[in-house]
Amino acid sequence: MSASAPSLSPLHIALRIIGAVGGGWLFVWGFTTLGIALGIATGMPYDEARTLLYLLAFVVFLVAFCWSFVTASIARVWLVLAGGGAVMTGGAWLLLRSIA
């Protein structure tokens, strides 16, 4: 508490926050849609899969959000959250197309 934090550039802070919030949301979106698609693919009713993923989504968001401020590199925040979110969303879309 007592140690004062070294100062960071406003750009660093902005990129970090946008990465945590926007990237975090995209990651959770990917996680949720991929989860639901996987659920449907394995025979779960859509409603049930959606309800289950909604229960998990915000815990995942919480972990992603906290992690983005702990991890050293901003590039990693963006790559994992935004990149991972995009990949999972794409996976969900492909999976959905193959089973629908």
Partner: peptide, 11 residues
């Protein structure tokens, strides 16, 4: 997370 109105609308 409006999945039901977007990606999963048809489902």
């Amino acid at each position: 997370l409006p999945v039901g109105e977007t990606m999963f609308e048809d489902v």
